[in-house]
Design a binder for these strands. Structure first.
Lengths: 254, 254
DNA sequence: TTCGTAATTATCATATAGTGATAATTTGGC
DNA sequence: GCCAAATTATCACTATATGATAATTACGAA
């Protein structure tokens, strides 16, 4: 184990399911002596990435909250989301959750969201939660923007095994690409519909999507066109704002 | 430079003011050769803590968002905040921002917040933003819980120089400690009042405060008692929920 | 409070892995 | 398809992480 990886592997152990670890547990899990782990944990505590707590346990530290703020203030996609998502939810023709998600490694992750006041369903696309890339409108609207070896790499890492299955999926993606819209019913959360449109900025290397998630009832066929109209208009706003960031950078560099 | 520190120093360069860095800039800032920084940056990119973007710049990466979610799901204080802060704002007798803040090194940092719908003032206590520890009701309600060398260490690092100044401040803190309430007017943000009450859990080593920040007008003297009543009742709820976490841990350990 | 166990830190010889100057390669803008 | 800048690879040299062990500290139970 070397470099940043050794710290990263420790941090990665802390999860929603198991948020508390003792040094002994970490050492056992990583096959390392406790003396080494003590040293590494101490460094992470000093930096605020870990904190010690009751019963000689450790948990994630508040430095993460601080970095999350800096990231939210400086990431063009998140900034756009914070500026527009409330408005997008307010303008939505249906009570819903609005999700701004992006490609994150071989997963898709929501980085900003908003919901109408009345919408109280639990949804899988929570901010910061990596989701499988082949399921749901949110993910497909992102995947549809990828091509060539980039797409292949992601698909290889996915749950889609076999060329036939992947071939059929790629055909679906092409349709999404040309229509700029993706819809799935109950594929991620039962009883919920997802509608998503792509959000891109080539210069920034951002492949993202803007989604509207709402309850699947008999008004769906009537409301869906309005949902997409709303998503398209806000996707455009978000893309424009991201482009203005690119222009700023270009101005600073010269 | 050694251990986690070398990565930490790189990450720390990324701020709200300067969120984009080239390898050359980092190398210059840290007095290191570019070849070394390239290697370190590559590791951070591989882990998702940094991302490359336009113009050979780098910015903070989305792994931070993922860790922030895990932290929010597992930190007892933040969890309590997410569960109760909306309700606290809704029950507030005045349009306001509700802030749950904690001690973070030698600073105070908001880790969760909520605001009433109409309250649209910009406030300094944003989630994830470290604030100086000697100013504002939010900070003082936390400081008032500290004693002995713990308090001294924090005060030494503060802007309060000189024993007289510190002595006077400590007297103030004692009053806050006994009354369990702290109020400041315009000390952090002009035209705004802050009311704060302590939130503690000894077992978890958490020193925090719950604050209500609202506009300073001529209704203040009438509304303040109700503000504190509201804060105290929710502080109690939050403390109870944190204690239940301690009990859970104790149950698991035995 | 004292005791005793577990948790944490310190020590140090050894081996490993980071360093940095340089060269090779890739990338991206005219 | 060219050139300059960005990025990666190479490698001898050290600095530093490692891990077994010992020393210290913290903490819960009598």
């Amino acid at each position: 184990m070397a470099g940043f990886e050794r710290y990263y592997k420790i941090l990665r152990l802390f999860s929603e399911e198991k948020g508390l670890w003792t040094v002994a547990e970490i050492a056992k899990s990583l096959n390392k002596p406790t003396s080494t782990i003590y040293r590494n944990v101490r460094e992470l505590v000093a930096a605020g990435f870990l904190e010690s707590t009751v019963g000689s346990h450790f948990r994630l530290g508040s430095a993460i909250v601080e970095f999350d703020r800096t990231n939210s203030k400086t990431d063009p996609l998140i900034r756009s989301g914070l500026d527009y998502l409330e408005g997008c939810a307010a303008a939505s023709p249906v009570s819903c959750s609005i999700v701004l998600a992006r490609l994150y490694g071989n997963t898709v992750m929501c980085v900003a969201d908003a919901r109408t006041e009345k919408f109280n369903r639990v949804t899988s696309y929570e901010r910061g939660r990596p989701m499988p890339i082949t399921r749901g409108a949110t993910s497909r609207a992102i995947l549809a923007q990828l091509r060539g070896r980039r797409l292949n790499r992601v698909l290889q890492a996915s749950e889609l095994k076999g060329d036939t299955e992947q071939g059929q999926f790629i055909t679906e993606l092409k349709e999404i690409r040309s229509s700029r819209m993706s819809t799935t019913r109950g594929e991620v959360d039962p009883g919920l519909i997802g509608c998503a449109v792509p959000v891109t900025n080539k210069d920034l290397g951002i492949e993202a999507s803007l989604s509207c998630i709402f309850v699947d009832d008999d008004t769906v066929s009537k409301v869906t066109p309005k949902v997409f109209a709303n998503l398209w208009s806000f996707a455009k706003l978000i893309e424009n704002q991201m482009q203005s960031v690119v222009d700023e950078i270009a101005a600073t560099t010269h």
